[in-house]
């Protein structure tokens, strides 16, 4: 029983740590990559990791989805789900606007690499 508790403790932490890993990966892609589409994918990873950060503390082991029914008594917390539903839609709006900007930048500078855009002298 003691060993099982230990295991549950470590596995319970893994959830947070992988979330942190995804945040780190997203941040790393945004800062290190010069390609703007890749940057936007990194931004999406950053955003998605936040969903995990919100939803996973609301999960209750043995609980079920928060749809009220006579057959169940334990439900997971519905509030983070609502907040993250909003965040998903706002995330795709950000992505669409970012991609539109990338297309215009590609038109003006002929490149989607940040390095090329900064080194180009013809600011028009």
């Amino acid at each position: 029983m003691e060993g099982l508790n230990e295991l549950a403790f470590v596995l319970g932490g893994v959830n947070h740590w992988i979330t942190v890993f995804l945040i780190m990966a997203g941040l790393y892609i945004i800062v290190s990559r010069s390609n703007m589409i890749k940057k936007l994918v990194g931004l999406s990873i950053f955003q998605t990791s936040v969903y995990l950060l919100y939803v996973s503390p609301g999960k209750i082991i043995g609980g079920t989805a928060p749809i009220i029914s006579d057959d169940f008594t334990v439900y997971s917390n519905p509030l983070p789900h609502v907040l993250i539903l909003t965040a998903i839609v706002v995330g795709v709006a950000t992505l669409a606007l970012g991609l539109a900007l990338v297309i215009r930048i590609n038109e003006a500078y002929g490149s989607i690499e940040e390095d090329d855009v900064y080194s180009g002298e013809d600011w028009n």
């Binding site: 999960k59 997971s76 993250i84 998903i88 991609l99």
Partner: peptide
């Protein structure tokens, strides 16, 4: 993690719409 509504939205919007937008870009 019991977030069924969020999961379906993420599959439709994250895997569907975002991928289409990225591919068109």
């Amino acid at each position: 993690m019991d977030a069924v509504d969020v999961g379906m939205t993420e599959a439709a919007v994250g895997a569907g719409v975002s991928t289409v937008l990225l591919l068109s870009a």
